[in-house]
Amino acid sequence: MKTLLRSQDLSCPSCVAKIENALQGLKGVNDAKVHFNTGRIEVEHDPDTAPTAVLVQTVRETGYEAVVAAF
């Protein structure tokens, strides 16, 4: 499943690798891509092993607030 998160907190592109690493390290996440310019975070994941709430919490642990977006 593909989930889209949006964050308004990204202030320096160094956070891109940080958030991507954190998400990709999760069990059940196949791919994660952070777009610095727009603040979009795309995650390919299995909602059973890595539910959306866990994705948000993981991004939060790296220090950024993110919300799930419809598009």
Partner: peptide, 14 residues
């Protein structure tokens, strides 16, 4: 704290 989270994932952060 954020440095530690990154380091745990082998990422040298600012």
């Amino acid at each position: 704290l954020r440095a530690w989270y990154s380091l745990r994932r082998r990422h040298i952060s600012i």
